[in-house]
Design a protein around this nucleic acid. Structure first.
Lengths: 339, 339
DNA sequence: ATGAAAGCGCTAACAG
DNA sequence: CTGTTAGCGCTTTCAT
């Protein structure tokens, strides 16, 4: 009764093929998976039967037997445009290699992340690609790998975790951004905004701090805010603006923050770059069309995803354990007129 | 050997639970699914056993038996930011209702769309949400529904197909856009760009044509181009610009085209809106930050996804067939300084 | 009210 | 070389 109501004839099984071809199901399986020799004559017959019945192996049954669904599970912390290029490649490469793509966001919540991991595991994904939202699931991730499901971290990584990772050099990127502003003569640079719980963001913050220190700038104007809460970012920055503290530089660490930052600057009639020079993270098609055209740190999310997917697929196919690889991509400073 | 290498003890099955609780697997199943009465005493014992073993039912096995994976399959024509809000809701609502999300893009290719549909079907998704890329798979889609897998179309719909749909009123939107430009005194309005194979795009084109006709404007400046080819759009528009045809209005039918259109206008030193008034589709956080701030038709993709997901879930749960629902959302004209 | 047993469609030992 | 059989973990008649 819970069985799905299917009006038509149900799909053929390997049994049907076997019967029609006059062989055993084992041989059909062998033929399909090239798992042992099958004589040309039988192969021929089987092939015909398959064609005739329009047979396709049932992936669910196969999954039950093999404990693997040929699916890669992708966990991103939040559904934002930033991850689109990533999803694009993962989807494409996965599809090309006959893998499916199971997607879920953790909403920056470690508890939910754990839940999703467990669901993915239960669903027998072949491997997991994820941008971890904290260090909290370190142990779980380790266990998962140990038990044989490869994990590759992308964009964010948990320090010391024995799992592949491909990330941007966030420290350097933020350092470069800050330095660039300093070179432009800015001394009161605000960092919008710092989320101590976020892995990438913390790195960026460190880069910012380091640059400030290296150039002997004492004023550390860090605006603290939970990264993923749109309205909270707005409020935090507005609050800062209301205090009337003077500043002449602004670093926005994500696309979302950049948009909000620019909107508020505009609302407060602050001129860019005369009053405040601004630099954002992530280059988008809009960056050069803004007024003024925005200086950015461009992260190559596409390449990130590409490397990560290749790595993951390699892990899935070659079960032998080799030391985790850690790829770090350099970001690019694109100077436009906002600084 | 193909079996996954799992160093640790394998996960407990309902059999283990049954044994530990001193009952039969049937009872365990009954307890879990509330599918028949189970005495409080046994329930108690079973619950304890479950806790003790950390048992979770195996979704794959369940899927094999039930022919359903509690997963919704999402097919989008292309991985673009436009679909992000959609994915956001689908993911969220699906997750809340304990459904997984399987994602794949059709790359605007009907053949690939067919392939993906077949894969999803084989994988026993509970339902399919899709933005069809052409009318080509009409028959297949019909069959799929007939056989019991609900489909809801989103953003794009195949005319006359017996499947739910929730889309924007593209005709009206384009009409409004064109009319707005006309009211601004523009007479030579270019439509960038027309892809006859694209379902939405064709509707937009019709709206544009209709407005032109209603206002007795003879010059139909339609730039033909395959919608999803980034470089082709650029080339097509550049070619148009090179011809030196005069024009004073520009309608860009997608985010991507808007970005490219603006970039080229800038490159050709055409002033907005003095030389040419431009209106784009889709409001983004950047729209108001561009120079000049961009007039747009804002489509509420989020709501679209929300309605679609609700509809799909309803179809999945209530197996009785009711007539397909067709929801059409009104778009909003947001006037800024580019027109 | 519960248990025993069959079966979803597949693969992989084990025989022959 | 190929067939027979068991079993992956679950649900569901059918019996009791």
């Amino acid at each position: 009764m819970a069985q799905k109501q299917r009006t038509s004839i149900k799909r053929p099984s390997s049994k049907d093929v076997a019967k029609l071809a006059g062989v055993s199901r084992a041989t059909v399986s062998a033929y399909l998976n090239r798992t042992r020799y099958v004589s040309p004559e039988l192969s021929e017959k089987i092939e015909q039967a398959i064609q005739e019945l329009h047979y396709t192996p049932d992936p669910v049954a196969r999954a039950l037997k093999l404990q693997d669904t040929k699916t890669i599970g992708l966990i991103i912390p939040v559904m934002s445009n930033f991850y689109m290029p990533l999803m694009q490649v993962v989807n494409e490469v996965a599809h090309q290699n006959a893998y499916g793509l199971l997607l879920c966001s953790s909403e920056e919540d470690p508890e939910r992340e754990r839940e999703v991991l467990e669901i993915f595991l239960a669903k027998r994904v072949s491997g997991i690609m994820m941008a971890p939202c904290s260090e909290k699931n370190r142990k779980l991730l380790n266990d998962i790998q140990q038990k044989g499901t490869p994990i590759v971290q992308v964009n964010r990584k948990i320090d010391g975790l024995e799992a592949d990772s491909v990330v941007s050099h966030n420290f350097k990127a933020a350092y470069t951004a800050t330095e660039h502003l300093i070179h432009k003569g800015r001394k009161r640079i605000v960092f919008l905004g710092y989320d101590p719980d976020s892995l990438v963001n913390a790195e960026k913050k460190t880069g910012y701090d380091a640059a400030l220190a290296d150039y002997k700038i004492a004023d550390n104007l860090t605006i603290l805010v939970k990264e993923h809460q749109r309205e909270q970012i707005r409020t935090a920055f507005r609050t800062f603006l209301e205090t009337g503290q003077s500043f002449d530089g602004l670093i926005c660490t994500t696309q979302g923050k950049t948009a909000i930052g620019l909107q508020l600057l505009k609302a407060y009639a602050l001129r860019i770059p005369q009053d405040v020079a601004v630099i954002g993270f992530d280059d988008t098609p809009w960056s050069s069309l803004l007024w003024p055209p925005l200086t950015v740190i461009s992260e190559n999310t596409y390449t990130m995803g590409e490397e990560a997917t290749k790595l993951l697929l390699k892990r899935i196919e070659n079960k032998e354990k080799i030391a985790p690889q850690h790829i770090v991509l350099e970001d690019e400073l694109i100077i436009r007129e906002s600084t």
